[in-house]
Design a protein around this nucleic acid. Structure first.
Lengths: 231, 231
DNA sequence: GTATAATGTGACAATTCAGTTACATTGTCA
DNA sequence: TGACAATGTAACTGAATTGTCACATTATAC
């Protein structure tokens, strides 16, 4: 699951259907609109992460919609992919001119659709350029996605990395297991609270005895990252 | 026929026409774009060997275009010549600062154009002016487009070369498969993410077991080039 | 000190992810 | 045109990761 919501705007339900299936298989959520009015409502209500809109639509063309979206600062950032039955260059250019981010000519394969969609989303969300965090010689570098002590890289799994990153960016603060599950595992996963303990254990192991004092148990509550040694 | 493709970017069709004739007589192929959007498309689709771009363009200046091209490793090597109506020194400097390879002031003779163009292509053909990159005995030389360990040249395909070049110029940085596709394959291609894995594999094979530790897997994310061995 | 609750720890099975190979397709060069 | 290299993809294999449990250990209240 990517958690990305895609709005499909097309008056032909068969096409929406086809696209919906492709999206579902690729792990995207989707919303459907069969006309421009409906589309506007959905955009306001659900704020999709990407919009697929047909070139030809009753009650206003996809071009018009795109133009309006791109003018409005609250929606300008939502990437738009245009669909068209014709492969006319003119349309393409016009579409791109009003700010569409990509353009697909029908007929297209589900695969192509998903690929383009991925490419557009990729471009749309440039990931932040975080600074490394260094505490007591323990360095976590989000750029290289690596944790080092001195120059020695530590070996740990992705979950331990995320857990450590969260704790280090919120040091001197105690978190319950539930909070950690929320923040590190993500909202709606069902995982036992004790699982956190196990990952804390793995994390401490990965960090080693010289620095594992940084990850402290807060009895009755959860855990805390702190540079202050307990007495 | 030189087989070189030149992209002309100008909003005035009369100027494009004039340049096109000059290029044709000199035995170059040419492509035309009348705005920035179109230019981007063509660059991605056709990968011209040289770009002629007008300083003043509707929908984004030629400077912006150049800056963007030069930032992107997949297009950075394409030489750019700027055209301008004015002979202001300021423009020239700004143009060259963002990475333009040459600069022609209008009005210019077809002959002058072709002469400059030849000069730039001559300089540029041994791709870019980059310095060789050497890490842990592994050397990538952009001039000869060759990778060596010590004095032994390694055998690898173009994609592996580009991949390695990208990773080496951005060492100590983890990239997702999606990002690598973007950077190495170029934005609009639609290719499976797992394809990256296969090319990584070919790259590691080409590099050999003595140095393949440099190309590291970042589980759950992608890959990283790093001189730091993980324990 | 003892009972009890909370946390630490190692082992496991399932699952996910990356490595690897084989193959089909495309592009290139002679 | 035919040979060959390069590329992308699917399928299989193997390894790392993950969540959970059972049991050990530690802390706390009385």
């Amino acid at each position: 699951m990517t958690g990305k919501k895609v709005l499909i705007i097309d008056d032909e339900s068969s096409i929406r259907e086809m696209i919906a299936i492709a999206l579902e298989m690729a792990g995207y959520e989707y919303l459907e609109a069969e006309n421009i009015q409906q589309a506007h409502e959905i955009i306001v209500d659900h704020r999709p992460d990407l919009i697929l809109v047909d070139w030809m639509m009753p009650g206003g063309s996809g071009v018009e919609l795109t133009r309006r979206l791109k003018k409005d600062t609250t929606t300008a950032e939502i990437p738009v992919i245009m669909l068209t039955a014709k492969s006319e260059e003119d349309n393409k250019i016009q579409g791109l001119e009003v700010g569409a981010d990509d353009y697909i000519t029908k007929p297209f394969s589900p695969r192509e659709l998903v690929a383009r969609l991925k490419a557009v989303l990729r471009r749309a969300t440039p990931q932040g350029v975080d600074e490394p965090i260094e505490i007591e010689g323990l360095t976590l570098d989000p750029i290289s996605q690596r944790v080092t002590i001195g120059s020695r890289p530590l070996d740990m799994g992705p979950t331990e990395y995320r857990l450590l990153k969260f704790l280090m960016t919120h040091q001197e603060r105690a978190y319950s297991r539930a909070q950690l599950l929320d923040q590190v595992w993500g909202g709606n996963v069902y995982v036992e609270e004790r699982t956190v303990d196990v990952h804390i254990r793995r994390l401490r192991k990965a960090i080693g005895s010289t620095h594992d004092f940084l990850i402290q148990t807060v009895r009755g509550t959860g855990y805390r990252f702190s540079a202050k040694r307990s007495v």
